[in-house]
Amino acid sequence: MEDRICRSINILRAGPMLTVQDRGRTGYMKYGIGESGVMDHKSYAEANRLVGNKDNEAVLEATLMGPKIQFESDCLIAVTGADMEASIESAPIERGKAIKVYAGQTLIMGFAKKGCRAYIAVSGGIDVPVVMGSRSTNIKCHIGGYEGRALKDGDKLSLGKENFAAGEEEKLLAQYELPDDYPEEIQVRVIMGPQDSRFTGNGIVSFLTETYTVSPQSDRMGIRLDGQKIESENGTDIISDGIVFGSVQITSDGDPIVLMADHQTTGGYAKIATVVYEDLHLLAQARPGCKVKFIRTDIKSFDSSRGLWNRLAHLFRGKGA
């Protein structure tokens, strides 16, 4: 049991953008502090589930190139999301599967072959201090994660206590999640509004029929898109208002930007539509050059598919608001 007290990992090589993230920070946007959190909630949930973690445990998120990490103690790890050709001691490991690693072993990941962001979950989770209810790194506000910044070579991270009994390890090692394929062209569903009335009929048609290309300037703040300009009635400046993860802002040049996990809390460009939550992971994994088509959907289809049944299920689980 000794190793459980000081379980830790060493970041030998961080790569261009490696951060500690969890589900994100709720309740501070009204003060100008954004939500942060993982970009791809689907891969994040899979990674935690595979290593037996609670669903809000902190993981590592790597963008376009993966890290090199040495483990100081035995643990389970799972790599999900982008395919960065992960290997342990030179032996390739599969995405979407729990892997047992032993103290002293090293995980090496390279450039993303498919997808854009990889998630590395370690049993027990990354144990950085909880700041304002979350372990997520918010670089702009210098809070959360490891000292409020992206990880650097030589950083050492503590791990939390494992969440499963000794006998359950076998069961976890037998699980498998089919890895995502990340095609070069994606379709994401959007709900129009809140400021779609600011755009001309032509503008709306361009947005919903043209194919857009992910720009290399995309990052955790937003996915910038190139393609047919979107025509507005009278410019896209609005009196600044609140933004959500998924808002599609149109700049004064007519280019769409889908605001992502590190979005500003407020902004002064009109928002033509919002990407639905379930499709955000597709954009999180879209590399520069990936083609994007927006498909219109309606809030009604979301209201009825959830609603009553979920509310009842929630109450029965004793989680009623």
Binding site: I191, G193, P194, T274, Y277
Partner: peptide, 14 residues
């Protein structure tokens, strides 16, 4: 003046 969805988890009231 208007109430509109901001995706499937938020509402913008203007």
């Amino acid at each position: 003046s208007t109430i509109s969805p901001s995706g499937d988890r938020a509402i913008t009231v203007e």
